[in-house]
Simulated scan of single mutants.
Amino acid sequence: MPDQKRTSVTYADAGVDISSGDRTKQRIKYLAQKTFTKQVLSEIGGFGGLFKLDTARYKSPVLVSSADGVGTKLKIAFELGIHHTVGADLVNHCVNDIAVQGATPLFFLDYLATGHLDGEITEKIVSGLADACRANGCALIGGETAQMPGFYADGEYDLAGFIVGVADKDKIVTGARIKAGDVLIGLPSTGLHTNGYSLARKLFFEVAGYKAEQYVNALKEKAGAALMKTHRSYLSIIKKLTATDLTVGMAHITGGGITENLPRILPKGTAACVELGSWPVLPIFEHLRELGNVEQEEMLRTFNMGIGLIAVVPADKFKRAKAMLERANEKFYVIGKIVKGDRKVIYQ
Rank of each mutant, 00 (worst) to 15 (best):
F303N: 01
T247Q: 12
L246P: 03
T270H: 00
G256H: 05
E275D: 15
L266F: 07
T242D: 06
L325C: 07
G277N: 09
K319D: 14
C273T: 13
F285I: 03
Q296V: 08
T270V: 08
P283T: 06
F303V: 07
E297I: 09
G269M: 04
V294H: 01
V274T: 11
V274R: 03
K319Q: 15
T247L: 09
K322F: 10
L309A: 04
A271F: 11
P263C: 09
F285V: 02
D316A: 12
P280T: 05
A321L: 03
P314F: 11
P280V: 05
R320Q: 14
K268A: 15
M305R: 00
V281D: 00
M305W: 03
I253H: 01
I258P: 02
R327V: 12
M324H: 10
E298I: 11
H252Y: 08
T254C: 04
I310E: 01
L246Y: 06
A243N: 15
V312Y: 02
A315P: 05
V281C: 08
I310W: 01
I265L: 13
L276A: 13
G292R: 03
R327N: 15
A251E: 00
N304Q: 10
F318T: 10
E286Y: 09
D316P: 09
I307F: 04
N293M: 04
A328V: 11
V248S: 08
G277M: 12
W279T: 10
E298T: 12
A311S: 14
G306W: 02
I258Q: 13
G255N: 06
H287Y: 15
Q296Y: 03
V294D: 00
A311R: 06
Q296F: 02
M305L: 12
E297T: 14
G277V: 08
L309H: 04
M250K: 09
T247E: 07
T254R: 07
L325K: 07
G249C: 10
K331R: 15
R301Q: 12
V248W: 03
G308P: 01
T302R: 04
R301F: 06
H287E: 12
A271V: 09
A323C: 10
D316E: 14
E286R: 13
A323Q: 15
L262H: 04
T244W: 15
A271Q: 13
T302S: 08
A311K: 00
E260Y: 14
